[in-house]
Structures are given as structure tokens and as C-alpha cells.
Design a protein around this nucleic acid. Structure first.
Lengths: 151, 151
DNA sequence: CACAATTCAGTTGTGCACAATCTAGTTGTC
DNA sequence: GACAACTAGATTGTGCACAACTGAATTGTG
């Protein structure tokens, strides 16, 4: 258990960790910002497009669950993507409460122009494959733990 | 070098990494949100208070450098802290361009009430001391690399 | 069938992140 | 001393995160 280690160490490390997590998150989105500028996308919009490219049409609820975003964030974001001509929204026939988001031909076409981004970002992050996997695993662990603690 | 590893692996991992970093960052601030609610602070406000508790009075520029926040973020944030009675702002006598932020007695007093937070968060994250250190090191590395790539 | 509980989107309001721009004050160079 | 270059902070505008709420549609239970 973590609680057995010395409190001082945890204090200092928590402090450094919250700084570095915050900083890393913003450093990442900062690089994404410049890379995505050509495509006219923001980073969260790119995340939405990624899920649509992978899964095809999805209800808003599904997108929110996958990206951990609620309707207050997704509704205006999806409207901007629709205004940009990348997606289309329509009420589901089976369940009128649900809105299904589909890609327009323009949205589908953007996929090719975005193809180089993941490799570019991976290189920019400059980690080895092992480091990548370790980092992702640790982040997933803290997220799970924090979600569980947030009761 | 990272570029020698297989592109496919990097694509998939970058994808997973950007999701998990985003998710972890929000999971962290989510827990901080509930913990800080009693103190009437948001997470970025807490970061500012932490630096003031540690270093005493600081010019806005110093705070921004330490937390990687610019004036567009700090100006309104510091005004809210001033409205809440936690800090005081005054123009520097040596350099009239600079604004020095100091703690009020209330701001100083809040320190005691916030003392338990780091340990609480460290426990909520639920990592071992080694994992903490590994995570922090990796995050610092990617941040440095990304900042360097953002030219 | 009726009706309470639930689910899904959307809206509103607050706060942070950041780009672009502005003003005032400072410094360097001639 | 004059003027260009620079620096610190503030302001404006766009977009995201999230809480709280509304309203419509659906589902479960008696």
C-alpha cells in the first residue's frame, strides 16, 4: 500500500506530479494545436474525428462515453464541426432522444490529410516504445484509481 | 531513436497515449475539484496559492514562469483570488511594469487548511513511490521534448 | 393504461488556456 | 535627450471543461 511510505516523500511527489501532469497535458495540446491548424481542428475536435473515423457513425452519447466528455462540451463542439461541414447530425429513428453523428464526405476526406499526425506526435514526444507503454499504463492506472476515489 | 521502431506501433500508442493523458489530466483535476471545494479554490488557483505559500510574494511574471501560465490566464485568476480576499496586488516600486502578488492573512491562514490535500491526492492516485517517480520523470521528459518540438 | 424514474441533448453560467493586440514603463544606442 | 526595441501586464475573443438545469422521449412498475 502507498500509505506505508513516508508522508514527506508523498507530499513532495504529489506536488511535482500535479505540476508535471498539468504541464505535460498542455505541452501536448500545444503541439497538437500547431499541427492541427492546417486542418482547422482543435485537439478535442480531432479526438472526436478520430473516433468517428474509427467507428463510423455514432450517437452523441457514445462519443461522450469514449472520450469522457459530457453534453455541455460535445453539443457546441459538434455544432462547430457541423458548421465546418465535417459531420452531420440527425435524430435517431429508433430512439428520438438520441442524436446520431455521421461523417460528411469532407469529414471522411480529412482522414487522409490527418494520417501523418500520430507519427509526427510520437516523434515529437521522443520516447522509446517501452517508455510509451510504461507511461500509458501508469496514466491508465492513476485515472482508474482517481475515478474510483471520486465517490 | 524512436524513429527506428515500427510506425504501426507508434500510431497505436500515440493514439492511446493522447487519450490517456487527456483522461488522466481531467481525472486529476476532477478529484482536486471536490477536495478544493471546501477551500473555495479551483485547481489552477490552488497551484498559484502553492507557489505563494512556498516563495512568499512574487511578481505575476514569476508565477507565470513557474506554472507555465500567461497573463491572459493569470490576470483574471489573480483578480478572483483578490476578490476572495486571499491575495493582494500592488505595482512594484522598482519597476512600475511589474505587479507583485502577496498573501493576505486569510491567504496565509488557508495554508493550514490545505495541508492535508497532497497526501489525500497521493493516496487517491494510488501509486507506489517508484511508480510516482517513474511517471513524473516520463512526463517531464515528454514535456521537454514537446516544448523543443514546438518550434 | 398511468405515472414515476430514467435517459439523452441542449442551454446557461463560471472558470481556464491561449492567441492577438494594446498600453505603459524600461532599456539600449546614438 | 531622442527614439527604437523590449518587457510586463491587461484586454478581447474563441474554444474547452464542467456543474446545474430544462425539456422531450423512453422505460419500468403497479
Amino acid at each position: 500500500m502507498t500509505t506505508e511510505t513516508r508522508a514527506d516523500d508523498l507530499l513532495r511527489l504529489d506536488r511535482q506530479l500535479c505540476f508535471s501532469l498539468h504541464a505535460a497535458s498542455r505541452a501536448f495540446t500545444g503541439v497538437y494545436r500547431t499541427v492541427l491548424k492546417d486542418l482547422g481542428l482543435t485537439y478535442p475536435q480531432y479526438l472526436v474525428m478520430l473516433t468517428l473515423w474509427e467507428h463510423g457513425e455514432l450517437p452523441v452519447k457514445e462519443i461522450g462515453d469514449r472520450l469522457r466528455l459530457d453534453s455541455g462540451t460535445l453539443s457546441p463542439l459538434l455544432k462547430r464541426l457541423e458548421t465546418a461541414g465535417l459531420v452531420h447530425r440527425r435524430r435517431s429513428e429508433e430512439d428520438e432522444r438520441s442524436v446520431v453523428v455521421t461523417l460528411t464526405p469532407e469529414g471522411e476526406a480529412l482522414r487522409a490529410r490527418a494520417a501523418g499526425i500520430p507519427l509526427h506526435m510520437a516523434r515529437a514526444a521522443g520516447l522509446t516504445l517501452d517508455e510509451f507503454q510504461t507511461l500509458r499504463t501508469l496514466l491508465t492506472t492513476v485515472t482508474t484509481n482517481l475515478d474510483h476515489a471520486a465517490l
